[in-house]
């Protein structure tokens, strides 16, 4: 019963947060609306990564590729085929999931660092293709001025669209993680041998997790195109993949909401520090080093830990 009450409290807090997010664009300048929208896109991407890295325990080091594939898929579908934009929006995440399936099938045979390395090399191949195939992908210039449906014109409209898709996606991710599949995935992370012994096909679960994560990364890619109206090869570059890993670390690996906090912190720091100085990467590097040394569980992980220990103290006192 106690647990149910917390759930209710958390739920109403989330509903309140959503209400604030809905009203917010009317109150703040356009720049902040844009910033929040880009935070939502990055947060979705980081959460999809956390599904595989934090909950699946896989070394998914080139997750940005699926984001890029989703973005490029929607850009190419809109500019090269006559399909209506909304159908392209729906198809693109499936393209990313397909890329996830193919890359996943090759990677999943290997463990840990080898897994990471082969994924990085496959991802770099896709990057090199997008970078050089001028006739098809626009090469290093990318594709700009992708036409959007009229209803998405203007930052406010695209903000609401992004917020809607983001909310639906995190609800989806939450249910996936609390489903038997999600729990099995976490069990396989903690003890793969024991899981196999009781008859769980660990690799298949992990592959499935990669496909799901790629799908949501593809959704984030579509949202990026909705926000920016352009794509470029940097979306597939390995630096972005490492940056979203940092967002997960910054927020907290094993927490559900951690990556959102990480993305929000990182993007707001980037835009505010970036205004003051041109040495933003230096500061990012220092922040990252400090985190590794002093806060390896992440900001949100740290808060959750504190809340938990306080609660335990209360229980002890009452007992």
């Amino acid at each position: 019963m106690f647990k149910g009450m917390i759930h209710k409290g958390a739920l109403s807090a989330l509903a309140g947060l959503l209400a604030v997010m809905l009203i917010l664009p009317c109150l703040i300048p356009r720049f902040y609306v844009y910033l929040i929208a880009s935070i939502l896109v990055m947060a979705l991407l980081a959460m999809s990564l956390n599904l595989v890295v934090g909950f699946g325990g896989l070394f998914q080091f080139h997750h940005g590729v699926f984001y890029g594939v989703g973005a490029y898929a929607v850009a190419l579908l809109i500019t090269k085929t006559g399909l209506p934009q909304w159908i392209c929006f729906v198809l693109a995440p499936f393209a990313a999931a397909l890329a996830g399936l193919i890359i996943g099938l090759i990677c999943i045979r290997l463990r840990q660092l080898y897994f990471a390395m082969i994924q990085i090399s496959l991802g770099s191949l896709l990057w090199a293709l997008a970078f050089r195939w001028y006739d098809f992908t626009g090469g290093d210039d990318g594709i700009h001025g992708i036409p959007m449906p009229d209803i998405l014109s203007g930052i406010h409209n695209s903000y609401y669209f992004i917020l809607t898709v983001f909310t639906l996606s995190i609800i989806g991710l939450f249910f996936i993680l609390s489903s038997p599949f999600g729990i099995t995935l976490q069990a396989a992370r903690d003890n793969a041998q024991r899981c196999e012994a009781i008859g769980v096909f660990v690799r298949r679960h992990q592959l499935f997790a990669i496909v799901i994560a790629s799908f949501f990364a593809g959704v984030a890619g579509v949202l990026f195109v909705v926000l920016e109206g352009s794509v470029f090869p940097d979306l597939l570059f390995w630096v972005l993949s490492l940056e979203i890993l940092i967002m997960c670390l910054l927020g907290g690996w094993f927490t559900f909401a951690g990556p959102i906090i990480g993305a929000a912190l990182m993007l707001s720091l980037r835009s505010f520090i970036g205004m003051q100085t041109e040495y933003w990467t230096l500061i990012l590097g220092i922040i990252l080093a400090l985190l590794i040394f002093f806060l390896p569980q992440g900001v949100w992980g740290y808060i959750l830990e504190k809340v938990k220990s306080r609660k335990e103290a209360v229980v002890e006192r009452e007992a």
Partner: peptide, 25 residues
């Protein structure tokens, strides 16, 4: 950091990359 998780070591070298890159600038 040698006693820490592998991922932390890797991320630390990434932090070093960011810092050194801007130091050169």
């Amino acid at each position: 950091l040698y006693e820490r998780e592998h991922l932390m070591l890797l991320l630390f070298t990434f932090a070093l990359m960011l810092i050194l890159g801007d130091m050169v600038k």
